[in-house]
Design a protein around this nucleic acid. Structure first.
Length: 434
DNA sequence: TTAGGGTTAG
């Protein structure tokens, strides 16, 4: 009895240390407990695994799993749920699926949380149909869906552009008694903003407020971002100041959004002020933060400082993503170093990336602007994926070249046909050209 | 235990 009470107390201590990211203290208290004859149980190990997944990484979590098994304690559904969610947070989505499979192989029955996380992973892996199948399975198996289940599904549908389906699901759920949370509305507002349905997004916001919910920092950041996306900068900054006046805590998401907007407008001083505030507040030291700061330096022409940051992020164990590569390529191009941009792209390919449309578009545009149309065309022809920006950059620069060579009016535009055939996209064949 | 917002090019 005494021992059981003690383990319970030990678990409370471990949970408290894990929650405040003091993993070493959590370990120390376990060692102290063992010395006093209080043995950790499955809850202790699960708490520790969850803490490591959140704050240290999967390797540390797996080593606890190993220790747990060594101590003769079998992992349970909560152990696996923590590991699956941890792998998902670390963007090791395939690993999450493997863990789910391993859990089944071990004879452990997944619960609603396991399925929620699995659905989330499948959406993020680009497999909405499989996620949908899991959603149906949950209902068929008679498991009680949690609000998170619905939010995950609504979010997944929005992410794939099925915003109307997401709203249909949402309305049906409401009719069956589902009470939407702020998160649900945030998901829908974001989904609507992303497909340009701004009026519907504002109506959704009003609906949330009418039901007694107060918009939060996430809601504000979402709306601010969508204003910037539509180039409604004034309105976006108004939201930014309203957020400040209302005393909302600014996090990395809000800062990166607003810094991005300042950079687009060339307002470097304000971007720097925000960046300094962000650093002072110790916020968001993650890859997006680095990408944003690197972009700031590149736009200001401080490439050396940008490269220093690349070293710094690597030393923190972070890895470049598509954004990092396109920001660097663009930075080199903008600063007149086309050779360097080529070299960077080649480096990118050696690290396992197979393509980067944005980076190639930057290069196409810059080659055109530098008068190297032949090189731009060669690059264009080698590209497997192109979008409207690829075409408009090329067409714009080709036209500029032709105008210089041939004069303005009586030109032959037959060569544009081949571009337009490729498309269905809006090539700028308007008054600017003709 | 879980779900939402941030960074790139014409």
């Amino acid at each position: 009895m005494v021992s059981k009470y003690s383990t319970k107390f030990l678990n409370i201590c471990v949970a408290s240390f894990c929650k405040s990211q003091q993993m070493q203290k959590a370990e120390d208290v376990i060692i102290d407990g063992i010395r006093l004859g209080v043995l950790p149980d499955v809850v202790t190990y699960n708490t520790l695994i969850d803490g490591y997944c959140r704050f240290s990484g999967m390797d540390a979590a797996y080593s606890v799993l190993y220790r747990m098994r060594e101590a003769g304690i079998s992992p349970d559904v909560i152990t696996y749920n923590s590991l699956i969610a941890g792998a998902s947070r670390n963007r090791s989505l395939e690993q999450s699926l493997d863990l789910f499979e391993e859990m089944l192989q071990s004879g452990i029955t997944p619960d609603i949380w396991s399925y929620n996380t699995l659905m989330h992973c499948l959406f993020r892996l680009g497999k909405p149909d499989e996620a949908n199948r899991i959603f149906k399975d949950i209902i068929l198996k008679g498991l009680s869906p949690h609000p998170v289940t619905f939010n995950t599904m609504i979010n997944g549908l929005c992410k794939y552009g099925y915003t109307s389906n997401a709203i249909m699901l949402f309305r049906n759920l409401q009719r069956h008694g589902f009470v939407p949370q702020l998160v649900t509305y945030n998901i829908l507002i974001n989904g609507l903003c992303k497909v340009g349905r701004m009026k519907a997004a504002w109506r959704m916001l009003n609906e949330a407020m009418d039901s007694g919910l107060e918009p939060g920092a996430v809601t504000y950041t979402t709306l601010m971002k969508s204003c910037f996306r539509c180039r409604q900068y004034k309105h976006g900054f108004e939201i930014f100041f309203e957020m400040k006046n209302k005393g909302y805590a600014f996090d990395g998401f809000a800062y990166c959004t607003v810094i991005g907007a300042f950079l687009k407008l060339g307002r470097f001083e304000e971007a720097n002020v925000c960046m300094e505030q962000m650093i002072r507040n110790g916020l968001g030291i993650d890859l997006v933060f680095y990408n944003t700061l690197i972009n700031l330096y590149c736009k200001e022409g401080k490439l050396e400082a940008a490269y220093k940051l690349l070293d710094e992020l690597e030393s923190l164990g972070l890895e470049y993503d598509d954004y990092t590569h396109s920001i660097i390529t663009d930075g080199l191009c903008r600063n007149g170093n086309i050779e360097g941009a080529w070299r960077h792209l080649n480096y990118m390919y050696t690290t396992g990336f197979t393509s980067n449309l944005v980076a190639l578009n930057c290069l196409i545009d810059r080659l055109g602007k530098a008068g190297q149309i032949d090189h731009a065309m060669k690059l264009f022809e080698s590209m497997e994926i192109r979008d409207s920006i690829t075409y408009t950059s090329l067409v714009h620069n080709l036209c500029k070249g032709l105008q210089v060579k041939q004069g303005r009016s009586d030109q032959n535009y037959e060569w544009l046909d081949s571009f337009i055939d490729h498309l269905g996209l809006n090539v700028a064949l308007d008054q600017k050209l003709l």
